[in-house]
Amino acid sequence: MATITHTPIIEFSKVNKWFGNFHVLRDIDLSVARGERIVVCGPSGSGKSTLIRCINRLEEHQTGRLTVEGVELSDDVQAIESVRRQVGMVFQQFNLFPHLTVLDNLTLAPMWVGKVPKAQAEERAMQQLQRVRIAEQAHKYPLQLSGGQQQRVAIARALCLTPKIMLFDEPTSALDPEMINEVLDVMVELANQGITMVCVTHEMGFARQVADRVIFMDEGQIVEQNTAAAFFDHPQNERTQDFLSKILAH
């Protein structure tokens, strides 16, 4: 187990957000410790994706404070870009750049954002590809790979900037069932290496195995949070019990 220190690396306090009139995040208070692994679950429309997309400012919150690694997120573009350099993100739809080879997908940000020389960027990229066990596909284009392979490339791409925090937004929801485990295996390995992780996922086996804390959201609020074991075995809130009974029924 990685050591968890108690300085928060991400801190939401009274964060609110609206899409038009729809109040999607309501008074969110959440503090994530360095090295902590968090799984966020909840029904669709509960605001869980919006919550993690606020962390790297893909969504703007409207009231409240959100700090990431000591930097408060506001309209300051430089602050946003400095936070984004420290936060890697993996999307449900992979979002690889289809016009670039796998290797170029990985070296793009290190070369242009991190100003790393090409040879060094490629060397690091190959290391990350090895880490997700896909190095032999480096010169293919994303659409020549299977969904599971693409998602592993996406994870490697996010890791190339050596982020301190990794965000996963339903990383296995768009995959064929046969490919889910290859992605989860990579995520478990990553979790064991001590990086701070916030994952929106309904893979409850994964949550039990790696999460330090599981958060349940509904109607834009955090309804319940607890250690993985306590969350699954003794859910306190009736809404959580109802949700778990539905997704664990089969």
Binding site: N56, L58, R84, R85, M89, F91, Q93, N95, L108, V113
Partner: peptide, 18 residues
Amino acid sequence: LPKGQIEAAHSLGLGYWQ
């Protein structure tokens, strides 16, 4: 162009012109 392309680029810290 799918919105996800730009989001992914943002998440990697690339600037507007990049």
